[in-house]
């Protein structure tokens, strides 16, 4: 084993598109960096900004939020809600001193196994270049639902 920094990237994704896209990458035996860990919710609309904060607080070096392409959400438009929350989330993370390149929002469909692989690899490389995050401000991120909406006022 080399001393290369191996980042851990949490992938929060929806069941119908991105999770299935990652399944397809598997069925097609595509290979990608083993640094990503998927966490499945039914729709990307379920992804609470608090989840992202918790991931960083617990030790994630990067977080990928992924769902169906706009228009393709299995629940009509949950992903549009995700899309609207994302800029606020990024601003919030920036305020906490987390580099924007550590969090990413991607639309990956059930047929885009190759895109999943590309994003997983890209993000691993990108975050590896940034180095470990070591963000230990646990107290700041108690599980508060709908944080982003609070900020939106």
């Amino acid at each position: 084993m080399s001393d290369r920094f191996e980042p851990v990237i949490a992938v929060l994704c929806c069941n119908w598109c991105t999770y299935a896209g990652a399944d397809l990458a598997g069925t097609a035996r595509m290979k990608y960096a083993p640094n990503v860990r998927l966490l499945r919710v039914m729709c990307s609309g379920r992804i609470d900004p608090a989840f992202v904060l918790r991931a960083f607080a617990e030790g994630a070096d990067g977080v990928l939020i992924a769902g169906c392409h706009p228009g393709d959400c299995h629940y009509i438009n949950g992903n549009l809600k995700t899309m609207r929350r994302f800029p606020q989330l990024k601003t919030m993370l920036a305020q906490f001193g987390i580099e924007p390149a550590r969090v990413r929002l991607e639309w990956i469909s059930a047929s885009e196994g190759d895109v999943f692989v590309k994003v997983a690899n890209e993000m691993t490389g990108q975050v590896r270049a940034l180095g470990p995050l070591n963000w230990k401000v646990r107290a700041a991120v108690e599980p508060v639902s709908g944080l982003a909406e609070h900020h939106a006022g």
Partner: peptide, 30 residues
């Protein structure tokens, strides 16, 4: 889908089988 769960500013909606506690526990376990 759970979109309302993530949106509720009072955390008053429980997304059954994908509750906040369950998902956060998963994240911590990682």
């Amino acid at each position: 889908c759970g979109t309302c769960v993530a949106t509720c500013p009072s955390s008053a909606i429980v997304g059954r089988h994908f509750t906040d506690q369950q998902v956060l526990a998963q994240i911590s376990a990682l």
